[in-house]
Amino acid sequence: MIEHCGISRDAGGLRSGLEELAALAGRFHAEVRVPGTAEGPNPELEKALRVADFFGLAQLMLRDALAREESCGAHFREEHQSAEGEARRDDANFAHIAAWEHRGDGAEPLRHAEPLRFTTLQPSTRSYR
């Protein structure tokens, strides 16, 4: 995840991230060993439950990063940068909140968009040069 969906992201990396993730999640369920039982304290079971959830979350993060075809804030897409390597935001197409709907574990989630309206401040470009 840190490689494909960390400090900077690009479509190729995100797509291969999705593939590697699917493979890893599959291997996890087949090859993991959770010692002990569900009775009594079992920190390894706690760990296994959360890592199983992280696979689902990671997939959603990758999908969201792939769908947001702009660079904004902490989300930097390699494809969307200026000649100086600075972020290029796309207000015409992405001034919205992406809200994902789960439609079953195997199914594609649905991406909703909640448009953002700015009445007092208009979007400006950050510059630190």
């Binding site: 060993r33 010692p35 002990g36 304290p41 920190p43 390894e44």
Partner: peptide, 14 residues
């Protein structure tokens, strides 16, 4: 150590 214990089937140290 706990990873080694899991591999040998022993309960990890809590």
């Amino acid at each position: 150590l706990n990873e080694q214990l899991i591999a040998t089937g022993e309960r990890p140290v809590h």
